[in-house]
């Protein structure tokens, strides 16, 4: 989930490296010496990136053009894996499952985190305590948290079943029913992500200058109108960041599904909870179909890129940057 901010930094980082490289041939000895030491100091990082990101990404591209079960020598099949992907109902099922999850997780998650951020931005007794409480799920182990949620969703004995008992719904088989399984998964994803988005919203809220509220009040605005005409527009750069991060992390939902359905049937009955990431994992480690799996990974990359580009294109319509900060 920290991918996007670091991607921005990465961009700056490589820019600096290029400048440093050009300065190696700079005019003065001082420029050249500075450039040399600067580059010498970033070299370990660059090598690390190359080794842990560059090479694996290259291998993924390479493998996607092969039929390879991991043991026998790979066979070159050109774009065969991609052709198969387009006609594979299991792949499209996983795209559908991922989209359905996104449609629930992103709006509900963003709305809840904004509400919590607004509440915790007020002068409130024990405010720091509540901020910590809301952030705790973010730093909780996903495996442990998901197991706890799985128990909560157990029929008859679970917490949710107890809450639903008055309306007679205590025997719902949340995890095994294809029509219900995405709800517990969405719940744990939203719960775990809430604190992180809340912190981003809080930072955004605190960056809004007080005098804008004062000026709006003098103009006769209050309550809802302050929120609608001051808070929301000025918060929009943060909202945009949260949205991009939400989309990227929602495409990658894996652990929660893996853990929650591990004890019944992985990926849910009839693959009703098999997300793109889980589908990728299963093609690689259950079916030993590594070439195909690499093609799935590249398809995921393409979908993420497409969605991010769409958001950047449409941001002009609703994201408001104060002059000078855009």
């Amino acid at each position: 989930m920290f991918f996007a901010p670091s991607a921005v930094k990465l961009d700056l980082f490589f820019g600096d490296c290029m400048t440093g490289f050009l300065n190696l041939f700079g005019k003065t000895p001082l420029t050249r010496r500075r450039a040399f030491w600067g580059l010498a100091l970033v070299t370990p990082n660059v090598l690390g990136l190359l080794f842990f990101f560059g090479i694996p990404v290259f291998i993924a591209f390479r493998t996607s053009l092969q039929d390879w079960n991991g043991i026998r020598p790979p066979v070159e099949i050109g774009l065969g894996n991609f052709d198969r992907l387009l006609h594979d109902p299991s792949f499209w099922n996983s795209v559908g499952v991922t989209l359905k999850l996104m449609l629930v997780v992103i709006p509900v998650g963003m709305l809840l985190s904004l509400i919590v951020a607004l509440m915790l931005n007020r002068k409130l007794r024990g405010r720091s305590f509540f901020r910590v409480v809301y952030f705790l799920p973010v730093v909780t182990s996903t495996v442990a948290a998901t197991m706890a949620w799985t128990w909560m969703f157990q029929p008859r004995y679970g917490l949710i079943a107890n809450l639903l008992e008055p309306v007679g719904l205590q025997d719902l088989n949340w995890i095994t029913r294809p029509d219900l399984v995405l709800f517990p998964i969405a719940a744990v994803v939203i719960w775990q992500r809430l604190g992180f988005d809340m912190i981003l919203f809080l930072a955004g809220l605190q960056a809004i200058p007080r005098q804008l509220y004062d000026a709006a009040r003098i103009d006769g605005a209050n309550g809802i109108r302050l929120f609608r005409f001051v808070t929301l527009p000025l918060l929009s750069p943060t909202t945009f960041l949260v949205l991009i991060l939400q989309v990227i992390s929602a495409i990658q939902i894996f652990d929660q599904v893996y853990i929650m359905t591990a004890r019944t049937t992985r990926g849910g009955m009839n693959d009703s909870a098999t997300t793109l990431s889980l589908f990728l994992y299963e093609t690689a480690f259950t079916d030993s179909d590594l070439g195909y799996s690499a093609a799935v990974a590249l398809a995921m990359f393409a979908i993420t890129l497409l969605l991010t580009l769409m958001q950047i294109t449409f941001q002009r319509r609703w994201v408001y940057y104060e002059s000078g900060s855009a």
Binding site: Q154, P155, Y157, N173, T176, R263, T264, T265
Partner: peptide, 13 residues
């Protein structure tokens, strides 16, 4: 009991 009541389909459950 049902699989959901047991909490899983495996023999250890």
């Amino acid at each position: 009991p049902s699989v959901s009541l047991i909490g899983g389909a495996s023999a250890s459950d």
